[in-house]
C-alpha cells in the first residue's frame, strides 16, 4: 500500500471538510493503519479551533438522548457538530454493537452533523483508543463543536476530562445513596452537571445531594473561578437543552477570557504524546528476544515481575549505550 499519495488525498479532503475523507481518516486512525498517522501529521496545523465537549455519566443516565437533544439545540444556534459516540467493545472477541445512532437518527441527513460510532477496542477510562484522533479530524474538518459521548462510566473512568475543554456530567435520580455520590470521581470532574430524567421520583433528593457535593467541591477549591452549574433536564421530552447550550457557551467564554482554552488543548496534546511514548516504548521493549525469555521465566514463577521488568529495562539501556 502507498502511504504517501492516499494520505495526502485524504488529508486534503479532511481540511476541505469532506465527510467521506474524514470518515476514512478516522477509520485508519482507529485501525492503527500507518496512513492515519500520516494524515494526522498533515492536518494538525488546521486543528485547535473546535470546542471539544465531553458527555459522560453512568450507564442508563440518558447520555445518547441528551446528546441528541443538545445537537438539535446547537443546530438551532447554527453550530456545525461532530459527534463521537463510544460504546464498549467485547474484551473477548473484540466485536461491538454500536447503537448510539439509534437515538440520534433525526440528525442523519443534516449535512452539518457528522456522527461517528467508535468501539472502545480495549481502552479503559470511558473513551476509545482513537477518540483523541477522531476529535482532531473533526476539528480540522471545521466543526465548531466536537461532542464526545463516552461509554457508561463507573466511579473513575473519566479520561474524557483530559480530552475535552468542557465536560458535562449526566446524573439521574435514584442511582444510589450518598456514599455512592461521594465515591464517584465523577463529582470531582466536570464543568457542567445535568440531572436528567428530572421528572422521576427522587429528583429533589438527587438535586440536594449533587448540590451538596458541588458546594463541598467549591469549598475545597477556593481558586476555582468557574462555578459548575447544576441543570435540570428531561431529554426524552427535549427539556433543558437551551440551558445546557447556554452553559456550554458560558464555559467556553470563561476559558477564552483567560488562557484556559489554550492550556487545556496543550495539556491534551502533551498527554497524548506521553501515551504514545508509553505504548510504543513498551511495544519496542517487549519485542526484544530478552523479553520473551523473561516472560517465560515470570510465567514459570522463576523470577518476580518487578525484577524481570528491571532486568529488561537495564538490558535495553546497555544496548543503547553500546550502540552510542
Amino acid at each position: 500500500m502507498t502511504v504517501g499519495i492516499a494520505s495526502v488525498e485524504i488529508a486534503t479532503g479532511v481540511i476541505a471538510g469532506r465527510i467521506a475523507a474524514g470518515a476514512r481518516a478516522i477509520r485508519w486512525l482507529d485501525d492503527r493503519d500507518p496512513r492515519g498517522a500520516a494524515v494526522l501529521g498533515a492536518i494538525y496545523g488546521a486543528t485547535g479551533r473546535a470546542h471539544i465537549v465531553g458527555i459522560t455519566g453512568p450507564p442508563g443516565a440518558g447520555k445518547s438522548t441528551l446528546s441528541d437533544m443538545l445537537v438539535a439545540e446547537l443546530r438551532r444556534r447554527n453550530r456545525r457538530i461532530g459527534v463521537i459516540a463510544i460504546d464498549p467493545s467485547s474484551p473477548f472477541t473484540g466485536g461491538a454493537i454500536l447503537g448510539d445512532r439509534v437515538r440520534m437518527a433525526r440528525h442523519t441527513l443534516d449535512p452539518h452533523v457528522f456522527i461517528r460510532s467508535i468501539g472502545t477496542r480495549g481502552a479503559a477510562g470511558g473513551l476509545s483508543r482513537s477518540t483523541h484522533d477522531a476529535a482532531l479530524v473533526f476539528d480540522a474538518m471545521g466543526y465548531d463543536i466536537v461532542l464526545i459521548e463516552t461509554v457508561g462510566v463507573g466511579q473513575d473512568e473519566i479520561d474524557v476530562v483530559n480530552l475535552a475543554h468542557t465536560t458535562i456530567i449526566v446524573g439521574v435520580p435514584g442511582l444510589g445513596d450518598e456514599v455512592q455520590a461521594v465515591k464517584a470521581g465523577l463529582m470531582e470532574a466536570g464543568e457542567i452537571f445535568v440531572l436528567n430524567k428530572a421528572d422521576r421520583d427522587g429528583y429533589e433528593a438527587a438535586h440536594r445531594q449533587f448540590g451538596l457535593m458541588l458546594h463541598l467541591r467549591a469549598n475545597a477549591r477556593p481558586d476555582d473561578s468557574w462555578a459548575p452549574p447544576l441543570l435540570r433536564a428531561v431529554a426524552s421530552r427535549d427539556e433543558g437543552a437551551d440551558v445546557i447550550a447556554d452553559a456550554l457557551e458560558a464555559h467556553l467564554a470563561h476559558l477564552k477570557a483567560g488562557d484556559g482554552f489554550a492550556r487545556r488543548s496543550g495539556r491534551r496534546a502533551c498527554a497524548q504524546m506521553v501515551n504514545l511514548v508509553h505504548a510504543r516504548a513498551a511495544a519496542a521493549l517487549l519485542r526484544l528476544p530478552e523479553a520473551t525469555r523473561l516472560l517465560d521465566a515470570v510465567s514459570a514463577c522463576e523470577i518476580d515481575p518487578y525484577s524481570a521488568a528491571e532486568r529488561l529495562l537495564a538490558g535495553s539501556r546497555n544496548d543503547s549505550e553500546g550502540a552510542a
Partner: peptide, 23 residues
Amino acid sequence: MEVIFTGLKQTPEMVAAAAVQED
C-alpha cells in the same frame, strides 16, 4: 465484528449517509 445499528424506520438516504459517516 463492529456492528453499527441505526435503528428502525430508516430511509435509503439515511442509510447511505450513515454508511459514509461510519466508513
